[in-house]
């Protein structure tokens, strides 16, 4: 099925079988391999992307369901050279090790903090509980998110 949507500010059209998940479409049809697939059954959160402002699991959404949507992937958080405040905070706090869950962590937190820049630690923990990280133990991820809040509060969250 031919569908059109917008990814990271760019209009795209793809021809996907109905069974193609948004995750596979992004990765294999559009070569946006920053979105990772960790379980394909909606538990691990590695494939999280932002669809019309909402963080969603792209393995639990069909590509054909993305028709006319505006999608942001981790690549869309990295349009300019350098790192955004959230990415910088991840580096500073050692909030990643193997890097596999990281794109999903960033997209989830970006969606959250864009909408709730004053989210407290409990809220952040609660939200991130939908993303599995096997390396860090999460503590540094929470620290990084707390640190990045100020940039979202000042409206600079998406600036590299």
């Amino acid at each position: 099925m031919a569908i059109g949507f917008e990814v990271n500010g760019r209009a795209v059209s793809v021809d996907c079988a109905p069974r193609t998940t948004l995750a596979d479409c992004l990765r294999h049809d559009l070569k946006l391999t920053g979105t990772h697939v960790g379980c394909e059954h909606g538990v691990c959160g590695a494939c999280t992307v932002i669809v019309n402002g909402d963080a969603v699991r792209s393995c639990l959404m069909l590509a054909v369901q993305a028709k006319d949507a505006k999608i942001t992937t981790v690549e869309g958080l990295s349009m300019e050279e350098g790192l955004t405040p959230l990415q910088t905070a991840f580096k500073k706090h050692h909030a990643l090790q193997c890097g596999f869950c990281t794109p999903g962590m960033l997209t989830t937190l970006h969606a959250l903090l864009s909408e709730e820049p004053h989210a407290d630690e409990d809220r952040i923990r609660d939200v991130i509980s939908g993303n599995i990280c096997r390396c860090t133990g999460y503590i540094t991820i929470i620290e990084a998110a707390m640190d990045a809040r100020s940039s979202y509060q000042s409206g600079e969250g998406d600036k590299a």
Binding site: L77, L96, F100, T102
Partner: peptide, 21 residues
């Protein structure tokens, strides 16, 4: 010391096996 590998991972530019075809 902050890690040198982080930059590519944070920008979605890591290259894992399924990223290669």
């Amino acid at each position: 010391i902050e890690r040198v590998e982080d930059y590519r991972f944070l920008r979605g530019e890591g290259q894992y096996l399924d990223d290669v075809s």
